[in-house]
Design a protein around this nucleic acid. Structure first.
Lengths: 214, 214
DNA sequence: TTGTAAATCACTGAATTCTGTGAGGTTTTT
DNA sequence: AAAAACCTCACAGAATTCAGTGATTTACAA
């Protein structure tokens, strides 16, 4: 294990960045700390310095957000540790982060001791997720079990996607060059498969399962 | 002008609070700094210490948010300076803060130098608003009614929430003990306010804006 | 080859949503 | 005190969705 590690911290709130910088410089085995206010800047820094060990990043940032940055970094520099420091604690965000193999996820509600601990853990190869994050993730895993075996057909997905754009059955039928009756049948089957009573359920399903790209 | 001023800083992100504390202790004419993680705690501190000169507060906080706290403090302790430190830069929020006579509004995008400068200015009786805040406010003054910001009424939120549970208008009316016609009117207005063509749009809005807790 | 799933279409009737318009009382803001 | 926003209710017709049933064709797999 190295004695000095070099970091990049990214957050578009400069003031928060200043605070983080202060907190992390208190750690003895931390060497250089580079600061960035958006994702692209992080990539430039990684290009410039080839001795970076850990990237700590917020999610909401201009130009390139933390999730996208995470993907990019993990693909291009698989050996670099990456963890998310965000105030977002919703299920969907957490899912994305876990899916993309982040080494950690800390909420900004945490105090600086937890942050320091997390940094040290991640640097030594462990993972560190906030308690709340873990709970949310468990919950989502449980929820997913309920509709994981749900598979929509290709056509049903197309219909659902257009439905998400607030089109009526008639409008969808015109877009897909099929009969309104057919669209209605597809919708019926979508409700059946997703266990929904109304279109509302189908919309929630679509969002939960990524059939809808906002 | 006093030589030492005492502050209270309030933010529910403990880590941010730590950072702020560090930054502000660098100022020479700052004396005691009290920390709080919600609005009610600030009120308790004000009750306990009668030598506080300035409160710096975030907006999003549990128990009592920054706006409400601002009102309360300004009413009860008109001589105490108060400024908002938030990441919210939407027109509506800014309007409220300006209306309620805050001594300043700084965005978390600012750097620590601006924060220090702002603190000193406010302590010496001036106001300090971030450039962006001023711009947003100006814009809102000109645009007046063109508020693109969507705010649902309390009742509308209730209806939307039940709608998200796949209830029909009839079922919602039974839950809220109101007429079906009323529910329909609320739904009508929800579609209007959110600019939706169908319920699908309302559902997407609900999810995007956290009106739906999965 | 037989079966299963998918995609297509049709018909009906009931239920629900959407659109439009109006209106009276309450609460909040200005 | 006046204005604006909110909550309530009503009616009505058009449009849409939902539920149930059944059927043909294709495609892929057991």
């Amino acid at each position: 294990m190295k004695s000095k590690f070099n970091l990049i911290i990214a957050d578009d709130h400069v003031m928060f960045l200043d605070g983080l910088h202060g907190i992390l410089s208190e750690l003895e085995n931390v060497g250089e700390i580079h600061l960035a206010t958006d994702g692209q800047q992080v990539l430039r820094l990684l290009n410039q310095f080839n001795n970076v060990d850990l990237v700590i990043s917020d999610i909401n940032m201009p130009k390139m957000d933390g999730i996208e940055l995470l993907s990019t970094v993990k693909k291009k520099y698989p050996e670099i540790k990456f963890f998310i420091l965000s105030m977002l604690d919703d299920v969907r965000t957490i899912n994305k982060v876990v899916q993309k193999q982040a080494d950690g996820y800390i909420l900004k509600f945490a105090d600086k001791e937890e942050l320091k601990k997390a940094v040290l853990e991640v640097l030594s190869g462990e993972q560190h997720y906030s308690q709340k994050v873990k709970e949310s993730y468990m919950q989502s895993v449980f929820e997913r079990k309920q509709n994981s075996h749900v598979e929509l057909s290709k056509r049903e997905k197309e219909v659902l996607k257009l439905l998400m754009e607030e089109l009526s059955s008639k409008e969808i039928s015109e877009k897909l060059f099929i009969s309104v009756n057919t669209v209605e049948t597809h919708r019926k089957n979508i409700l059946l498969k997703t266990g929904s009573k109304t279109t509302v359920g189908a919309v929630k399903f679509a969002i939960d399962n990524g059939y809808y790209s906002e």
